[in-house]
Computed example of a mutant assay.
Amino acid sequence: MAEDEHMSGRKFFAVTVLNSAITIVEAVGGLLSGSLSLLSDAFHNLGDTFSVIISYIAHRISLRDEDERNTFGYGRAQILAAMLNAVLLIVVSIFLVVEAIKRLTHPETINGELMMTVAIIGLIANLASTVLMHRGAKHNLNMKATYLHFLSDTLSSVGIIFGAAMVQWYNVVIIDPIITIIVAVYITCESWPIIRHTITILMQGAPKIDYDTVKQDLMQIDGITNVHHIHIWMIDENRIMFSAHINMRDMLLSEAEPIYHQVEELLAKKYGICHVTLQAEDFRGRGEEMILNEDLKQQLLKRQNEK
């Protein structure tokens, strides 16, 4: 959670003000100059403003302690915010590509000088916002999605400046919608992995861990004779949960606890697992599969009822 503390109220306020201001400037500049790429950047900046607000609210919610309603805490609020922001980026990108294609077939006159001036102002504001959000983007999907908004707008501003130069010096107005399409495609390509990762987390998907290796490592611990019914899932991008049934020789509870500690230490150091739940068994389940699927579960229940 310490990685998120940088998202202070001051930074939130500064980024919100910057993006609100540049949205107005680029929207007016785009309408006056006739530049679609400036208008597209204004749309992106408007999305950025909402993104920061959503991101900050989710961040504050995620800081709440665990309670009876959410025993694993509220960290997934940031996962939902990351997905929402990434989806918003893709929706806006699709809209802008459609508009850019229309411009390709029906080019319009563009004021290159005004387009250049507004684009430079946009670049400065977007770059400042990107720097402010950079730190948290490394370890937090929510911050990464928001950071991606600003990074995409910074790159868009660079492209718009290039386009403005082409319009002003060579009157190549077709470059404006082409830049819009390039930036939109780039944003979509960068946003999709975030959506895919958030879906995996919300579906309680497992990180890329070799289950066979996990079992082999646990079997090396003295006192464990078998491991089955393993479950590994992500609460968020930084917390991995683990549960399993382990067969152990018949022993006192005081003898089992040191083995539990060894399991927890191994899983934390080698696999980054932060929460471990173990069910100790003697002979029960020794011949069962490592991952228990629904069909196998029904078969086991049927066997037990027959007995």
Results as ranks from 00 to 15, higher is better:
residue 2 A to R: 12
residue 4 D to G: 07
residue 7 M to N: 15
residue 7 M to D: 12
residue 12 F to C: 12
residue 14 A to S: 09
residue 15 V to A: 10
residue 18 L to F: 07
residue 18 L to T: 03
residue 20 S to V: 05
residue 20 S to I: 06
residue 22 I to K: 04
residue 22 I to L: 08
residue 26 E to P: 04
residue 27 A to E: 07
residue 29 G to C: 13
residue 35 S to A: 06
residue 36 L to R: 04
residue 37 S to G: 10
residue 40 S to C: 13
residue 41 D to A: 10
residue 43 F to T: 12
residue 48 D to K: 04
residue 49 T to N: 06
residue 50 F to D: 11
residue 51 S to Y: 10
residue 56 Y to V: 07
residue 57 I to Y: 11
residue 58 A to I: 02
residue 67 D to W: 11
residue 68 E to V: 11
residue 69 R to V: 10
residue 75 G to V: 02
residue 77 A to E: 06
residue 80 L to V: 08
residue 81 A to V: 00
residue 85 N to K: 04
residue 85 N to M: 10
residue 85 N to D: 01
residue 86 A to S: 15
residue 99 E to K: 15
residue 103 R to V: 00
residue 110 I to Q: 01
residue 111 N to W: 03
residue 113 E to S: 08
residue 113 E to P: 01
residue 117 T to P: 00
residue 117 T to N: 05
residue 118 V to E: 05
residue 119 A to M: 04
residue 123 L to C: 05
residue 126 N to D: 06
residue 127 L to E: 14
residue 127 L to C: 08
residue 137 A to E: 11
residue 139 H to N: 15
residue 140 N to P: 05
residue 146 T to H: 10
residue 148 L to R: 02
residue 149 H to K: 07
residue 152 S to E: 08
residue 153 D to R: 00
residue 155 L to H: 05
residue 156 S to I: 10
residue 165 A to N: 02
residue 167 V to S: 01
residue 168 Q to E: 09
residue 168 Q to S: 14
residue 168 Q to N: 10
residue 176 D to F: 02
residue 191 S to N: 05
residue 192 W to K: 01
residue 193 P to T: 06
residue 198 T to I: 08
residue 201 I to M: 04
residue 202 L to W: 08
residue 205 G to N: 07
residue 207 P to E: 10
residue 221 I to K: 11
residue 230 I to Q: 03
residue 231 H to K: 12
residue 236 D to G: 02
residue 238 N to R: 11
residue 239 R to T: 14
residue 241 M to Y: 07
residue 241 M to T: 06
residue 244 A to N: 09
residue 246 I to Y: 01
residue 259 I to A: 11
residue 261 H to Q: 15
residue 264 E to F: 02
residue 265 E to D: 14
residue 270 K to W: 06
residue 270 K to L: 04
residue 271 Y to A: 10
residue 272 G to T: 02
residue 276 V to Y: 06
residue 276 V to E: 06
residue 281 E to K: 01
residue 281 E to D: 13
residue 283 F to E: 15
residue 287 G to M: 13
residue 288 E to V: 11
residue 290 M to V: 14
residue 290 M to N: 05
residue 293 N to M: 06
residue 296 L to D: 11
residue 300 L to F: 12
residue 301 L to N: 15
residue 303 R to E: 15
residue 303 R to C: 08
residue 304 Q to G: 04
